[in-house]
Design a protein around this nucleic acid. Structure first.
Lengths: 222, 222, 222, 222
DNA sequence: CATGAATGAGAATTCATTCAT
DNA sequence: AATGAATGAATTCTCATTCAT
């Protein structure tokens, strides 16, 4: 792959050493709790996860949970915040490198979006937001902030550049970004969110991505 | 509105009079339970809703619940099935009446889709499917069957006709239908599902619908 | 087998037609209930058996149970009475036929007692009496009346004859009968009542019976 | 009573002071629960005893029961094990002291067996085993292990000594022990297990014990 | 900070019994 | 007689949270 038309920021390492002085030899108790809570919340949802389960999985006592977090809801929102911040990889920016092939760049951008959004972590966080929308309305803001807005901004900037360069004719680059993101959700992302059977192979992803690129070009090519 | 380019089947009245001789207060206990369960499940989700709450709201004893449904899961799936069947209005078909203005027809179809899919009932059912995807995998099939597939089929048939008539150039009408449906979810539906603030006024809906129609025409106009 | 030193009264057929005018074509509802209740009470005990289970197994409605029996306790005692009366086979009498071999007669009597008392029906009824001794004190009387006293009387009469004939020296024939019955319970009956693993083959039964006969002869032979 | 031909191990005191520094009101919660559960299980049986009753009698909350025992069945088996171990007094050994009178020794051994086996604790445990044989098959093993086998072994050893000393002619001392134990159950034990009215006075016990001794001597005297 | 026993409210479910049809 | 829906009390068990150690 000779060109890299987009740049995905890897943030997974961010959470590796948040409190260097805490843990004895491994990770601090705070982190172990957060990690275990996350695993369970993502698998089972909020209500089905008990504080006992979390304590057990983290290898700490139930009481310790309340030394670090005010209550179950506090632990839950802390988990969600932290996961959204550190694990929600996004298409933050598209490289300004000279691109011989705009269609390929679009296709790869779409494929990246699809791949990122069907990551189990992302799907799980999406599910939690939808499931707990009534009880925890702030979750959606967090998800949007860390997960969507950066992707949209990155796309919009890139589209604006292409417009300026005359390669695309886009008046409202924010709208175009939203359309591009929405179209990328066709079939694979949508069905994955519903746990419906769907082919998520790279070939299948590329097929959808190609369709998105073609459609987008037909919509915005000069 | 001089033309009616689509036909939405209204099924909401179907459940209005299930037992014509029973007053509202004495409608069959089965239905009262199902109705109350639905209200609570949609508001609170599966786990947060207790059988006691349902019995209380339905005005029956807790034991009665188990005379009509095997257990909580059985009541839940029965509710979901019934609601999906009777309350999930869909864009089933688009009228074959001569259409002077294709763009208007597309715009109205999109607006209808948006309106139907941000209906609280539809949003609630979607949330439940996503939230309970692990515990109740069949829900998604039910939602797809009653909610999505008919819309897709209706759109695909309509597009095939337009292709035959030379008004559009569409090779894969199923794909086109999926694209049209996905694009219609831009902004309003997506944000509504996450309970994010969003303008759902008719004007706002029409704005998105117009954008969808324009984009679609640019993609498929001859 | 040239001699029949004892006579076991088969009473299993007694319950075949207790109410000839009741049933439509098969057995009457009353009998079906009693039969089903018995099956379940014997298998599961009183508390673990529900009226619903009985109604279901009998193929009648729950309400019907209360048309024929006052309540669960009434059905239970009716079942126990009927089963004890009709299914508790006992060694009622020992034949007066000339007996060339007293030891063989004793051995066969003991073997018969063992066989009768490890019958699942008898074991089940014994268990029920022991289990429900506090709640239903009358059960023991019923069991004793139909199950034990006739055996004891039969044995005592036989022993008295043998004493009169000079074949045995028995002053208290009632006590001797009780001893004979108690000794016959060695190992097999006792362990069967506790559901402990035990060999109940005819050979094993005969082994114990032989031991009983030998011991009894050493105790009472002239 | 000049001679002590048998030795009964008294274990009742073992559980009297499990936690020497705790007053009766603050004896360990685990023990209070076990004690209360035992009282109720023995009186009412497994099914009729509720966890609420146990909690109430023990003076603890319902939830506390589950901090110490996995569930009702776990509490039940724990109770049975503990009671069988600590409360099931047995005729473990018969003293080797020179015995001027073998018949008296036999009589006292039998009387001891009868007395031990009609102890309310022993009767209750026997009832529970019989009642719950299907649901809790392991109970019988426990009862046999702590209650019967030691008595049988003690008797068999004693009989073997008497055989070696020429006082009895016993080829199979294990069988003889089983016979002696079975014969001792004549009348009193058997009827007590069924809650049938029976004279359990020392005089009555001695009467049966004398009969057992006499019969045993007639069977095995040289 | 860490622990885990203790709590009491509430969860789902069962059950004997009644009663209108 | 027969039915089976309705009832409400009771059952087992879970859970978030507290607090003495």
């Amino acid at each position: 792959m000779q060109e890299q038309p987009f740049h995905e920021t890897m943030t997974k390492t961010e959470q590796t050493a948040p409190s260097p002085f805490r843990s004895r030899g491994t990770s601090s108790k705070y982190e172990r709790i957060l990690q275990s809570a996350g695993q369970l919340f993502l698998q089972q949802g909020y209500e089905r996860t008990s504080m006992s389960q979390i304590a057990h999985l983290a290898g700490v006592s139930k009481g310790s949970l309340y030394n670090h977090f005010e209550n179950k809801a506090g632990l839950f929102t802390a988990f969600f915040e932290e996961r959204s911040r550190t694990r929600l990889n996004t298409l933050k920016s598209v490289s300004q490198a000279p691109q011989p092939d705009l269609r390929t760049a679009l296709r790869q951008a779409s494929a990246t979006i699809i791949t990122l959004m069907i990551d189990p972590e992302a799907i799980g966080l999406y599910r939690i937001v939808v499931a707990e929308a009534n009880e925890f309305p702030n979750l959606a803001d967090t998800l949007w902030h860390y997960g969507v807005s950066r992707t949209l901004t990155g796309l919009a900037e890139w589209f604006a550049e292409k417009h300026a360069a005359g390669q695309l004719v886009i008046e409202d680059s924010d709208l175009a970004a939203e359309q591009f993101l929405t179209m990328s959700q066709t079939r694979i992302i949508h069905r994955t969110r519903l746990s419906l059977p769907v082919d998520t192979s790279p070939a299948s992803i590329d097929e959808v991505a190609s369709m998105v690129a073609d459609s987008f070009l037909r919509m915005y090519a000069p």
